[in-house]
Amino acid sequence: MSVPRTWRNRRALYSLEGSKCQKCGKYYFPGRTRCLDCNTSGLENHNFSGTGKVATYSWVYTPPKGFNNRIPYCLAIVELDEGPKLTTQLVAVEEGDVEIGMPVEFSFRKISSEGDEGVITYGFKFRPKNYPNHLKKK
């Protein structure tokens, strides 16, 4: 990711900033300025709560360039509590731990690094909800 592009997206990456339509209440991630449902413009920024559930997932063994040292890793589509879905990596899980509907929460991690001298991109990934107490019986 280029430096200006990462910088423009930093609030979405760092704290799940999207947008909400004041008129019809629909949430968007990533954020947008005009509502797709009611065509209202000038949507306000909204910080998502950072909790949701796994809509679907896949374990990646053949990754794109730059992710070779992390395989296997879990790529998932997470449905946020407010409604929008996003693609993200699941962390703090091993194969067999993940299932559809599993509650998850925001985790701050390194996304990529341009070699040893380039910029490091940080942002959201997701992990089991109530980490590190997620395995304890209620």
Binding site: N69, R70, V91, F108, R109, K110, I111, I120, Y122
Partner: peptide, 8 residues
């Protein structure tokens, strides 16, 4: 973890 550092 592989994607953790002092910042994260």
């Amino acid at each position: 973890d592989m994607d953790e550092d002092t910042i994260t």
